[in-house]
Design a protein around this nucleic acid. Structure first.
Lengths: 136, 136
DNA sequence: CAGTATCCTTTCAGATACTG
DNA sequence: CAGTATCTGAAAGGATACTG
């Protein structure tokens, strides 16, 4: 695929948000914002978790996607995998220092989204009457 | 699809990171972390941009995906579309107050990623010798 | 328990052509 | 200029079965 990209035609003020299509920043951003990346990182933010705990913590994730997401986050150095050769095996996953730095930036984002999601989607879980309004 | 999800089997400390599969939080998260969502939001963070400017600001985005991403962000109330019925038409896109709140949480994340991406991907653009090291 | 391997469906996303 | 419509190939992702 040929990408034509003439920076001179981009408005100067907007250049701060410009990243080349194949730069490291976009690659890492794609890993983090992959379908399950944020959820896995946040699940590990408080404690290390075993494979099964992690899987149960993230409703809807398949084994395949959990494995794949963990391998990516591991290879980026966000997650550390610790396997014990016991029977049955026990494998713990934890954030690395780098993973914690990243998660620290994800928490405010996720908190804000969680706080505002109902209003954004227009489907409040508990449609409360506003102050001054009456339900009669 | 049947989803079985037994919260009692999730470790107590991990519950903070648990979101039901089909909750508003996940929906909004998916919109924001869609392939182009973050890049569009950040491109608009400093200034409003016209359609063409926006398209040129985000290297690699197709018209289809720009349109689709903008419609989603618009319907979530993050982006405002202002069309002028001139010939040729001029359409500006800008963040709403809600969009700015969100972007304010995305900036630290993106800055951190941009600052660390080269090290994370292991392909530094400028492999500098560390202090104390010599290239001889 | 902690995964892999495989198959298969669905969705994503690019290219192209067209419109007001 | 600012889009929409349609087609198609690529990729993501789920279900299932299997393994150390």
């Amino acid at each position: 695929m040929k990408i034509s990209f003439d920076v001179s035609r981009v408005r100067p003020g907007a250049v701060a948000g410009v990243y080349p299509a194949k730069c490291a920043t976009r690659t890492v951003l794609d890993h983090v914002t992959s379908k399950w990346g944020v959820l896995v990182l946040l699940a590990l933010q408080q404690d290390s978790l075993r494979w099964g705990e992690l899987r149960r913590s993230i409703e809807g994730i398949s084994e395949k996607m959990l494995a794949s997401t963990l391998r990516t986050l591991e290879s980026d150095g966000f997650v550390n995998r610790e396997a014990q050769a016991t029977i049955p095996p026990r494998v713990d996953y934890e954030l690395t220092a780098r993973g914690h730095q990243l998660a620290d930036r994800l928490v405010p984002l996720m908190d804000w989204i969680a706080d505002n999601a109902d209003e954004i989607t227009g489907a409040p879980a508990f449609p409360l009457a506003k102050a001054g309004e009456s339900s009669f």
